[in-house]
Nucleic acid binder design. Sequence first.
RNA 1: GCCACCGUAGCUCAGUGGUAGAGCACUCCCUUGGUAAGGGAGAGGUCAAGGGUUCAAGUCCCUUUGGUGGCUCCA
Length: 735
Amino acid sequence: MPTITLPDGKTKSFDHPVSGLEVAQSIGAGLAKAALGIKINGELKDLATTINDDCTVAIVTAPKAGQAASPDALFLMRHSAAHVMAEAIQDVLGKDILLAYGPPTDTGFFYDMFVPEGKKISTDHFDAINKRIAEIIAEDRKFCRYEQGASDGLTRLKSEGNKYKVDNAERALGLPSSVYSGQKSAFAEAPTSPLRHSATSPLSFYATGTPGQNWEDLCRGPHVPSTARIGAARVLSLASSYWHGDENSDRLTRVYGTAFPSQAELDQYLNQLEEAKKRDHRVIGKHLRLFHIDETVGQGLILWTPNGSIIRKELQTFIAAELRKQGYTEVFTPHIGSLELYKTSGHFPYYKDSQFPPIIERDSLDALATCSCADVMRRVEGVSQRLADGINARTHATTITKDRILPDDQLVQGFMLKPMNCPHHARIFASAPHSYRDMPVRLAEFGTVYRWEQSGELNGMTRVRGFTQDDAHLFCTEDQIPAEIQGCLSLVKTIFNVLGMKDYRVRVGLRDPDSNKFTGSPESWDKAEAACIQAAQSLGVSFSKEPGEAAFYGPKIDFVVKDVIGREWQLGTVQVDYQMGNRFDLSYIGPDNKPHRPVVIHRAPFGSMERFCGVLIEHFAGAFPTWLAPEQVRILPISEKTNDYAAQVEAALKAAGVRVTTNTGNDRVQGKIKEATDWKIPYLLIVGPRDAENQTVSVRARGTEKDLGAMPLAAFVNAIKSEIDSKHAELGVKP
RNA sequence: GCCACCGUAGCUCAGUGGUAGAGCACUCCCUUGGUAAGGGAGAGGUCAAGGGUUCAAGUCCCUUUGGUGGCUCCA
């Protein structure tokens, strides 16, 4: 006879087992009406779930009008909507579309399905599918859960010929998969062999309506009580996926959809998507001529056009100034380095698949002309005995294996486009002796690196093949690690604050506790990890510890920002590295007059200028604060009669270092304003005969509907100068 | 890299096998106008590239190339 504890601490006792609905009814009719599901001891369940034992219970309700739905309510609605969409798709396209996996997501849901050869789900079907979804919701059929014994359930699923559901069921039952081999295969050879298993727990199915009569799906649940409770749902887009995310397994069609409590909220969400598209850095970047990607130059290679270059340059100047305050010194290094350099650092050939292929010297190419491809690669990747001995001794391991060691005359000489700046910086550190008194040595460079990203991964400025990192390497003693990490994070905080970026989080990657695949002593790791965690905490934004996410050479801190479409982008990273000193035989002289290995901290707090600017474009929707705006002021003379005065105003602003142009065209001022508005210029100065006479400018600030009125030219120059110097994110000029 | 979709003027896009279009931008002319588009004219295209089918291809087919959405990957 259950006693139920409610969220407010009150208890209710029943003299018989009760359903979630009865509990809700016992509290109030309104609550029962709004109820979508129930949380029993924190676990989300169907409203119809029978409660036999004492427990804590919370009723999950649909949101009241005008209120946001709770995550639990959205989960129930979207999980249920996935069923409705799947039914609609099968109604429109046929039952031979096999359902695989359909979970809710942050913004909606998807359903992965196998589409048989010769059939295709296309966006042309969306109208029909959406219509059917709306019908099913309007029919208000109950979601009916029933269970079937493991044996019967599996037999039934196999007879239905859907191996994905069989696989799901076997996984749910904890059985080894009889159908998933990680191999590509046409569907339909779901085994019919007799079942041999020890599973006892039943499988649950949900009928959208009456079992045996309406549409059904193997499903763990839970669901809303009936289809009308979903509110509004629709199919959104198509994509492809692999079964279990395994590219060797079957390819499935992923159908995305979303659901909201009401049509109004769904419409609002769709509207938001449209708005987000307008903020897309690729769209704005083209419109405002910020950057260009040219297929003649190559995929994933950014051409910074004049406007974008201004933004990048301002950011770099700003970052460099902050770095100087922190005691960094700036260096420049070339875009390529010898193969041996990257064999020393370990980047080659270990990461060769994500690098551009090597640049081979002419003489070597001549010598290789008779070799087989495999032999060429063997000799390109080979390492000299001397280099191997050095690295193996210093890393206390067989880092370079015997099969990679070749006689010098067999080695191929060549270069790599640099995938990272650290090897060059390591060689700069090694180029001069260092005392512990000089440490830490902080070498900073806006260093351009090249990586071979898969073509399907390229995306505007955020995923590219050539990019410039705001890179630096801090060569320090172990004791200096905490302070140096702290310094990196305070830099990030400063710059994110100035740019008004608040939606970011921090991941701290720690070593895998169950693995000994890391270099450096456990004590060192403990200290470095503690330093990372403490530094992350001090930032005051949400952060997560992620064991197993460290690099093998040290723990790291990653900065992740959310873009306007909700995608997360990793920007910067701070990584502690115990390995590089060994690899490059780096040392400093300690107080004991003996050489010691420095620890290296790699840090690129904004990742790359390309990605960072891409995210910034979306963050500001192209309306950059004045200090970053490519064009800060545009002067709009009322007519040609005022062109002379406009030139005078332009000269005064240029003398003050302001980026200004004048529109001397013969449009009317309304037209000039409209055009300038498109360019999202912070300030428009309308000047006419009145202004010329009084030495004033009539200011119109971006985002304001009206003019701010006239102000003396000198006052405007001072105001905008101070706004630019202070890097305010908001427009600051007041008349 | 894989799957799907897409590529027409500088930009945004129409064009379902029969003479390549619109708006904006650009050039010129008229207009000299005080806060989100005054009027007119002109110029601008190997319809991504290559091949094929056809009397005829922007349109249908194949290949290549680039983009988009996902998947996989991201030291």
